[in-house]
Nucleic acid binder design. Sequence first.
RNA 1: CGGGGUGUAGCGCAGUCUGGUAGCGCACCGCUCUGGGGGAGCGGUGGUCACAGGUUCGAAUCCUGUCAUCCCGACCA
Length: 574
Amino acid sequence: MRTSNFLLSTLKETPADAEIISHQLMLRAGMIRKVAAGIYTWLPAGLRVMRKVENVVREEMNRAGAQELLMPSVQPAELWQESGRWEMYGGELLRMKDRHGRDFAYGPTHEEVIGSLMANEIRSYKQLPANFYQIQTKFRDERRPRFGVMRSREFVMKDAYSFHLDHAGLQETYDVMYQAYSTIFSRLGLGFRAVEADTGSIGGNASHEFHVLADSGEDAIAVCDKYDYASNVELAEALQVGNERSAPSEDLKRVDTPGQHTIAAICDFLDAPIESTIKTLLVKGAEEGTVVALVLRGDHELNELKAEKHELVASPLSWASDEEIQSAAGCAPGSIGTVGLDLPIIADRSAVNLSDFICGANEDDVHLTGVNWVRDCAEPIEFDLRKVVAGDLCARATDEQEDSRLSITRGIEVGHIFQLGTKYSEAMNATCLDNNGKAAFMQMGCYGIGVSRIVAAAIEQNHDDRGIIWPDAIAPFKLVVTPIGYNKSEKVKAVCDELYQELTASGIEVLLDDRNERPGIMFADADLIGIPHRVVVGEKSLDKGMIEYKNRRAESAEDVAQDSILEFLKAALA
RNA sequence: CGGGGUGUAGCGCAGUCUGGUAGCGCACCGCUCUGGGGGAGCGGUGGUCACAGGUUCGAAUCCUGUCAUCCCGACCA
């Protein structure tokens, strides 16, 4: 491609409404343009990158035995009513009516379509296992789209759905997909991590997310390399910290604590370590109108996702109102405690093993010290409630060494694999006959990759102050040829044209910058759009029989003899 | 959905308080010089000042309403 024939819409200045680096660079490099909130046009430079990602994904899905198909983006409401999600899905489902007034939705995902399709197409276990995928535009009407294509409403996704006679078959394909995903992200040149994930409302027994590691990531991941453990912090198990509960050694004492309503204030006021305090949080119970107390050690934070998994706790988690707190505890938040509290008390593992601790007295501006479970209040229900923090022991650890502890890193979720079980096959009545001729609901798995999001994630991970640095596998062009004086020097023009033709003929995607621009502009543009390899052809070098080569990541350039440049480049780009 | 910003040329912004012919830089077009990291000069093109209504002799500017968009949070995966 020649720049004279390519829409190179680079911007010198950063558009004001772009916050994160990938969004800024995608706009500046002329990859995308916003059409509406969360809706973007992909310009040629951007689309070239997305196609590269798609192709790698397609190759590896095919290699893993999945078959590509294409389902409609506009889906009839009946399918969603059948699965119950027409009501359940909420505002994210973009609904519309056709000219006859019939309800449709723009597909945010395709379990319904594939489920009803395969209910018809698959009749016998002999057709199983089967795995189908598509690469297609989805629409989720996010409440708050943000960060460019990182969290857009319209986006490109690879979604795959597998079908099995039994769970063993599902597990087998799940493992194959796990491997395929690892291969895909490796081939894309991305630093990533597979992490255990919450199965959320979908349910099922296993789920992994694939995260591109980047400080700007929206998700926090707890990692322990020694035990090969990585989990979304939403899910990561928090072990008990501290020693086993010891016998009470202090008497229960009432202390006036006027105006001290936070843990930090109490510790300061009583000159007590924060590990000797507990906090008591009141939340709505699963049963309408009830309230439940959640207890954590003072220095720990509540993991709301864990809490709402307890059968006594309302899901989604919902805080008790001030009135409910007043009537249940007899005081305002800040003075709640476990003594004399007539509520179910669910305590985090690390709070359960405390003795002689400090808590509120359920009376405004009064606290208790020397509190002990059993002696002073009921034995609590033990439950994993807290958020893990860096330095916690890994849940798999069998020792307490430094390298058995968790570190917290941030990631961008670019892939997610689920074992769905029979949830959708039951909803869509997708059965097949087993080898006894009996109908059985098929086991399903589903496997997503955020194709457009990967483009942004790759930039988050690969950029410098001059612009994007594409991994070779997804660069819009592998090599840029920058002539000095293309329109002035016959010699330079001839060498560039020949180089361009030969490299192009050997299958290398080359951008020849034939604009009549000053070198600085050409260098700046090439760096901004992130082309990984560059050669500069100028009369000065040519007179010495040299052509200059530079890797985008390298500090400086090197001279290569003109007569060996082709082999050199073929080797460098291999 | 709650809170906070912002809407003036393709991009970045000033002008709004204090009403009086719509400006600057970049980009873009033409010419000249220049030619290894966003160069310089001269001359140009481009705007229903988000929209609607109101006040006024006169509104980008004041008033009312609407919309769009960005950020934080909640929500979602």
